[in-house]
Amino acid sequence: MGQNRKITFILTTISAIIGVMLAVQLQSNLHPLQSESRSITELRKVLLQEQEKSKVLLADISKQEQLLSQYQESLDSVDSIGVMKEELSRAQKQAGLASVSGKGIIIQIEQDPILNEQWDAENLPLPDPSNLVLDVDLRWLTNELLANGAQVLSINNNRLLSNSSIRNVGEKIQVDTKTIRMPYEIKALGNPDTLISSMKLEGLEEFFRSVNMKVTIEERENLVIPAFNGTKHIQHMKPIKAKGDS
């Protein structure tokens, strides 16, 4: 009887060990190494992006420190106000409230008289109003320009701010609250070569030819883009100042 119990005991122990082993193996097989589906190329891109971001952050911080020390070094309030004024003009420049200049291009979109004549000669029906330049076309154009490195834009000398809208109101297009009329003139600051070649690549001319418009692109060494001429008051937004917000 005693012998029998001993056997049962040993068997139980060994079975328990096997059970644990089985469980461990099953678990490690059910949850295999968190396999990174992302390729090395993808990871490198992410890393580059993060490194770029830290560069930008460092530049931001050094600018802030510079401003801070300027404030601290100013001896009296007149000096400090001077620093503040400088900072204001910098912020206004960035917000689009000041005129800026630099290299850039001018894109002119106008009705093409030759195409119009052809249209008449071939006795085609005149383009109906829906076949004109629409707000979406101009939005597409401005978005493409910005995506290809344009820094500052204006449409018919209306500077585009961060919160500018371009939309059809009836048959007219409004930029913010200003109605614009043909011909449309878009000014863009940025590297002219990149901008011109990217606009060619995007098929700008062909696109507007389909609605009977002629596009001319000119390169300018010194292009002046005017400040936003209107009023934009911020009523609902305020800077975040509370501690601990990120």
Binding site: S80, I81, M84, A91, Q94, S162, K238, P239
Partner: peptide
């Protein structure tokens, strides 16, 4: 500065507005 100097108060309001419009500061509302 804005508390002590009347000139600075107006400046600060403009400055904050320009910064928010430029998007260089976090904002809420």
């Amino acid at each position: 500065l804005a508390k002590h100097e009347t000139d600075a108060a107006g400046l600060l309001a403009n400055l904050e507005e320009a910064r928010m419009l430029a998007g260089t500061v976090p904002a809420e509302g």
